[in-house]
């Protein structure tokens, strides 16, 4: 609790996910930080999905919005909302737009 640390009261509250020092960020800190942000999801098949990460669960099932599907780097289709079954996910990376 911050009340136990008087020093903290003078500081403006930082965003939770970014308060963790760079070298101590865990994978789940990363996932919390990219929620609601544009991400690239790479599947084991090599297909990429770029869109806004809406939410995810412990199986790495993913819900995304405004998703674009890229096969071999080529835009193949678009989905308003989409659900990706977690077992197919190789990685999630943050994406600048």
């Amino acid at each position: 609790m911050s009340s136990a640390l008087p020093d903290n009261t003078s500081k403006a509250p930082e965003k939770e996910a970014e308060a963790v020092p760079e070298n101590k960020r865990s994978p789940s800190d990363f996932l919390k930080a990219v929620l609601g942000r544009p991400v690239n999801v790479r599947l084991n098949s090599g297909t990429d999905y770029r869109g806004v990460l809406a939410c995810l669960d412990g199986y790495m099932n993913i819900a995304m919005e405004q998703t674009e599907e890229y096969v071999d780097g080529q835009l193949k289709s678009k989905y308003g909302d989409c659900f990706i079954r977690g077992n197919n996910v190789m990685y999630i990376s943050s994406q600048r737009r």
């Binding site: 599947l43 098949s45 999905y49 989905y79 308003g80 989409c82 659900f83 079954r85 197919n88």
Partner: peptide, 12 residues
């Protein structure tokens, strides 16, 4: 379910 990769609902 194990063959499924992606599910997309209709545009709402």
């Amino acid at each position: 379910g194990d063959i499924i990769v992606l599910v997309s609902p209709p545009l709402r």
